[in-house]
Amino acid sequence: MIKRIVILLVLLMLAFIFVNLAASYSEQTSLSALGHYYVEQGPSELGAANLVTAVVVTYRGLDTLGEVTVLFISAAGVGLLLRRTRRKDDHEDLEQGDRAEETAIARKPASEIVETATELLLPMVILFGIYVFLNGHLSPGGGFQGGAIIASGTMFLLLALPESHISRLMIAITESLSGFSYVVIGVLGVILAGGFLDNRIIGLGTYGHLFSAGAIPLIYVFVGLKVGFELSAVLDRFRKEDSGPL
């Protein structure tokens, strides 16, 4: 009872703070100094039409590298936590639980409509994901969004054909290679241009074209591949945990 009152009190106090915050809030009528600089200089300095991309990939590129690292660690954590241990000294309960889970998993297959739709739509979903991360510097979207779309394609596949096999080795290799290339591009920025993750290591190209904005499309391709495969691996881990580490 005391606990409930404390919780209520905490929420009420927080609500009080929020009401005061909202009451004193007024919409900005012009950009902040930093935003103003990015909007004014971004297109001519980096050649990216999508200014959010310019901020994410170049101005705040180090944050994005950290973000990719966090995602990698969480994917690794999921893999570690959901690994099915096959050791004999395991808890008896756990083994029983596993068996109960396996019988629960043996359910009806997906209907033919879902299966056919998946076969038809899966290539398009993946193609759309690739389109989104290739055009990240020109239109809404980018590596993370494209990667999430690719992972939703994997989700689709796992829902329709739960038995389909996803190669963990392929996922691991693609993921590590794209993460590595991302860092290599960052270091090349130090050597060839103004600093770590500077996108001007190759020419900026024609403004507004697919091959423009220097290394931004390259970085986004690697980010997109990495995120897509990482999220697919996470989804695969949640589906079944019995096929070993790779």
């Binding site: 900005q28 950009l31 902040s32 930093l34 935003g35 990015y38 909007v39 971004g42 200014l51 959010v52 310019a54 901020v55 994410v56 705040r60 944050d63 994005t64 973000e67 966090v70 995602l71 660690i73 969480s74 994917a75 954590g77 999921v78 936590l81 959901l82 980018g142 993370f144 995120v227 999220l231 996470v234 881990r237 949640f238």
Partner: peptide, 24 residues
């Protein structure tokens, strides 16, 4: 302002990672 949008993009991805770990 593009800066908060970029920060939210980062925050969404990290929230996703944290949720995945919590679910596992």
């Amino acid at each position: 302002d593009p800066v908060p949008s970029a920060l939210v993009l980062t925050a969404i991805v990290i929230g996703l990672g944290v949720t995945a770990v919590m679910l596992s």
